[in-house]
Amino acid sequence: MSTESKIERHTIAVLVDNEAGVLARVVGLFSGRGYNIESLTVAEVDKAGHTSRITIVTSGTPMVIEQIKAQLERLVPVHKVVDLTVEAPGIEREMALVKVAGTGERRVEALRLSDAFRARVIDTTHSSFIFEVTGAPDKIDAFVGLMRPLGLVDVSRTGVVAIARGPDAM
């Protein structure tokens, strides 16, 4: 279809039955059909009910996004698919652990900036910090960007989790 349509970024929440291979099904769907995954997180959210929640950030034209949702919905172990970008605007958060090594001025500056980002120091040595920072993905990007010249060593990010605003369940 019309290739001029513009690319949109969407966050999609998928509630799945927590059976073996369900994540492979979702990932295989994206790779097999050539869809883009910017971030994917998964964890069990209801032990008794055996359900897991997958949060996928993807991008594509409106037609592709519609396809992605329809394709997810037709996977057999999928309970529900919600587009948190359109159907139920949601809140997104990501957490990162950021290791910065250095001494002297750079070390002081890293600590000062981490404060501005409300990052917590969760490990420290004479020559390094590990920061825990939470926020929307672009806040994490910004923080990591600022740490780079100050001795950034390692980053581990959770990927985006998201939830709809308001009182209702997904």
Binding site: M1, E66, R74
Partner: peptide, 11 residues
């Protein structure tokens, strides 16, 4: 019967 067939190739 398959929602994913609709608007897949032709709008």
């Amino acid at each position: 019967i398959d929602a994913s067939s609709i608007n897949k190739i032709v709008h």
